[in-house]
Design a protein around this nucleic acid. Structure first.
Lengths: 269, 269
DNA sequence: CGATGTGAATGGATTCACAGCC
DNA sequence: GGCTGTGAATCCATTCACATCG
């Protein structure tokens, strides 16, 4: 299915080039919309959708405008239409076969995921170094050896490689994935990977995330300290404020992104 | 609830306000620098460090300039000095106690981490819903019940909560963490959390990451398709090109972020 | 009317390029 | 001479505000 027949655009490369930041948010909108669809909602306004997605409505509308004009003025958007259009733009009509390298705790979690976000990302290969693990099925798929990454990836037409190994192994694993023809890499190892320029890499780095949070805690503490010339007790939440949410959003970061475990029934033992 | 004391405001608050994006990169520089220090390097130029961190040197210098002027013109930077300064800015001189909620595969991985990035982030509480898990030590720390989140977090002065639960539980867990006085949340569950504005949230969303990669694959395919008017075979890497790295970097994303498993000795069973 | 879609304005972040200093 | 530090210029992203249309 070629999906969209050809998109209007006469010339070539109709790449309107949609902003990176918007792409990440579209994925979030898609999830929210899917939830709404399940609940039987058929239409939604930019106001509602943006609130549920934690962004402001202007941004949401601009993001959606990159898809084309699929809303109805004075009314809103049809949930199903948006879902289809976002799936089209994100390339979710194709299947993207995934390989997970490094079957530790995290790799295990990923493997058991067994087909990611509403399908579309079937896990079709697992790799590890540990001899005790080779051949053992994890989530229904036997583990292969690191050595075989290039061959197996090529054979199974893997397009996305996930690196969940210790940092020391990451670069060599990465090289093998590239040799195996994967087009994108999602890297959980805390190293900066060197890759040829045609490979897309995204990284998920827990240490970095924690340190960013640490920075904000520290900044906050500094501010509280600076407030000493106002009052004597800034009020450290020792017991806690029973604050409830309810505000529009509050965090509105902008650039974030990254993988999740998501949970589902993953109890370790 | 007054919560936050009052936010500095115009007057004081000498906060030079260092850009979010730069903060994330500083954490990366820190890791690279630590590696260099271990190898006995004592000085480094912006060129070297930027290459190792996968950014360009101008950006690196600007980022470092937010710390102050700690380089020597014509020479470079002292590794130890940079390490100290970055640690200072990121607030890594304080300790930040961490709670992990949801002891599935991912939570397990996090718990076994047992003290994160070069210490500074000790895991001091674990929570789950599963009765079979309560009281069982994981990574040396017994699991408590979700109900007890507010009390335990308050008692142990937890400042960072990590949510690794299924999506349905995430918001209620989040509310309890907030009630327990945590200041920041790292969310691995694929939901948009609603929090009071003084709480810092970062999310790590695997589904979103994969979909972003999917987008790039699709875009690439479109371009290849468009190239049909040039040649007949764009050259799908069926077997793979043995390309090796060696370029400056290639991905140069900019905004990414997010947690990692990192690996270390985490084999599941 | 009411909500979309979008040019224009604003604000951040990246890059350039060069002055300043060792 | 070489490398840092940084204003100025550029580029990208967000927000504003309103024309547009069902």
């Amino acid at each position: 299915m070629p999906a969209v027949p050809a998109e209007g655009e006469d010339t070539v490369v109709r790449a309107k080039s949609i902003p990176e930041a918007a792409v990440a948010r579209l994925a979030v909108y898609l999830r929210v919309l899917s939830g709404m669809a399940e609940q039987g909602l058929t239409t939604v306004s930019s106001e509602e959708l943006s609130a549920a997605a934690g962004v402001n409505s202007a941004k949401l509308r601009k993001d959606l405008s990159y898809l084309g004009s699929y809303g109805t003025r004075g009314v809103g958007y049809e949930v199903q239409v948006l879902v289809s259009q976002i799936e089209r733009i994100l390339g979710l009509t194709r299947q993207h076969k995934v390989a997970v390298v490094g079957i530790g705790n995290l790799g295990h979690a990923l493997a058991n995921y067994g087909g990611f976000p509403g399908r579309g990302f079937p896990v079709e290969a697992l790799f590890d170094l540990d001899p005790d693990l080779i051949g053992v099925p994890v989530g229904g798929l036997p583990v292969s050896h690191l050595e075989d990454i290039p061959r197996v990836c090529a054979e199974r037409q893997i397009s996305i490689g996930i690196i969940a190994t210790p940092p020391t192994a990451a670069q060599s694993v990465c090289d093998r994935l590239v040799a195996g023809g994967v087009q994108c890499i999602l890297n959980f190892a805390p190293v900066v990977l060197q890759v040829p320029s045609y490979i897309e890499v995204r990284k998920v780095d827990l240490a970095v995330e924690l340190q960013i949070l640490s920075f904000h805690v520290a900044r906050r503490a500094d501010i509280a300290e600076a407030a000493l010339e106002n009052q004597g007790k800034p009020g450290l939440p020792g017991t806690a404020l029973p604050v409830d949410n309810g505000n529009g959003n509050g965090n509105g970061n902008g650039h974030k992104g990254a993988g999740t475990d998501g949970g589902r029934g993953m109890v370790v033992r």
